[in-house]
Simulated assay, not measured.
Amino acid sequence: MLHVIGTLEPQAGHQLRSLVRRLPYDNEVVSLSPGGTPPDRVPVHRIIGVRDHDTATVRHLRHLMRTGRYDLVHTHLYQANVQGRVAARLAGIPHVVATEHHLGAVTRPLYLATERLGQITVAGSAAIADRLRAWGVPQRRITTIPKAIDVAEFRFDPALRAATRARLGVGPGVPLIGGVGRFDPDKRFDLLIRAIAEVPGAVLVLVGDGPARADLERLAVIEGVADRVLFPGAVAHPHDMYCAMDVFASPSQTSFGLAALEAVAAGLPAVYASCVPLAERAAARTPVPGTHRLSQDRESLPRTLRAELLCLAERDGARLPARSAGARYGTDHLAASVGRVYEQISARPGRRLIAPLLAYRGRFGRARFGRKNSFPVPGSSVRNA
C-alpha cells in the first residue's frame, strides 16, 4: 500500500506516521516536498512537486505506482489528493482513498474533477465533511474519521522539561505559556502576544513557523514584550515543548484542536477558543479537567491566563495528570477506522477507466487478475504485513 502526502511536516505528517505504525499492511510513503520526519521502518520516496497541477509529478507518481504494483493508494492533503488520484488511475491502481486533513484556499474545480477518480474521501473532521458536501461531493463518497493522537507519546518527562527550558533560556520558576501551530492569521497568535503584556512575569513561547512570523515578531516589539516572547521555530515533534510549558493556549476560532489534545495529554491546563473534541465533552457535561473555553470577550484570554497561573502557584508548580478526550480521538481508533475503509472498498470491483491492468504478478509471486478480492485484507490468504 502506497501513501502519497503533500508534506511530512506537522501535523498531517504526524498523523500519517501514527497511522502507518498501526496498519497491518506493507506500507510505503511518497512525500511531494522536502523536509519533514519520515515514518520509522517504512520506505519513503521523495517526488518534489512545484504546483498542484504539475504533470511531471503525476508522471513520476504513475511510474512508481506501476513498478511498485500496489494494491491500494491512499493520498493525504490537497496537492497529493489531486495529483495522486490522477496518477493512480493512470497506473491502473484498483483502489484509491484520499484524506483531507484540512481544506484551505484550494482550486475547487480541479479538486472536484480529480475527486471522481478515487473511491472515498476521509474527512478529518465534521467541518471538512460539511465543506466537501457543500462543494458537491456525494455523501456516499465521504466518511468522517477524526484526527487523533497517541497520548503515550506526550507523557510528561521532567528531565526533558529541564533540558528544554534551559535551551530556551527560561528559568525553573518562570511561568511559561505556550502556543503551537502554523503562523497563519487565522491562528490568532497575535492575541496571545497582546495578552502576555497583561500577564506580569510570564513568558510566551510560540512554537511553529509560517507566513505571519515577521508580523508576530514586529507585534511583540510594538507591545513592548519582545523580551518575553520566544520563537524557537518549527519542530518535528512538540513533546519537549509541551513538557517545558506550564499553560497551553489556543486563541484560534477555527481550529480542530489537535494541539490542545496533545497539551492535555502532556499534563497541561489548556485554554482554547476552538477544540472540537474538548467542546464535545463540555457539551455532554463531562468536561476534561483542566480545560477552559474562552468567551468572545477580549479580556477573556488574559484573564484566564492569569487565573491559570494562580492555580499553578496553588499547586506549587505540580503537573496535572495526563488526560484525553476519549478513545474516539486515539490513534488506535484512527487506524482501525481506516482499516475498515480499506476492507469496504476492497470488496468492490476496482475501477480502471483510464489504464486497464488486465493481469499482473503480485509482489508475493501469485497471479492477480483484478478480482474483487485482489486487495489483501486481514484474514485473507495473502500476507498483510
Rank of each mutant, 00 (worst) to 15 (best):
H3Y: 10
H3N: 10
I5G: 04
T7L: 08
S18F: 13
Y25S: 03
E28K: 13
D40E: 14
G49Q: 04
D54F: 07
V58S: 06
H60R: 15
L61S: 01
L61C: 08
H63Q: 15
H63M: 09
M65C: 03
G84V: 09
R85A: 07
A87D: 05
L90V: 04
A91C: 05
A91G: 00
H95R: 15
T99M: 00
H102S: 11
L103D: 11
P109I: 05
Y111M: 08
Q119C: 01
G124Y: 01
A134Q: 12
A134H: 09
R141E: 12
A148E: 02
A148S: 10
D150N: 13
A152C: 06
E153K: 09
A163N: 13
A163Y: 04
R165P: 00
V174L: 07
L176G: 05
G179R: 01
P185F: 03
D186P: 12
L191C: 12
L192M: 12
A195V: 04
I196D: 06
P200V: 06
A202P: 00
D209L: 02
R213F: 07
I222Q: 15
A226W: 01
D227G: 10
V229P: 12
F231E: 11
F231S: 04
G233I: 12
H237K: 09
H237R: 14
D246S: 07
A260W: 07
A260G: 12
A266E: 07
Y272V: 09
A284I: 07
A284F: 02
T286L: 14
P287W: 07
V288H: 05
T291Y: 02
L294G: 01
R298W: 14
T304L: 13
E314L: 03
E314C: 13
G317V: 12
G317C: 02
A322C: 10
R323I: 01
S324C: 02
Y329C: 00
D332H: 09
H333P: 02
A335S: 06
A335R: 00
A336I: 07
V338Q: 07
A347T: 05
P349I: 06
L358Y: 11
A359Q: 14
Y360C: 11
R371T: 15
K372Q: 03
P378Q: 00
S380V: 13
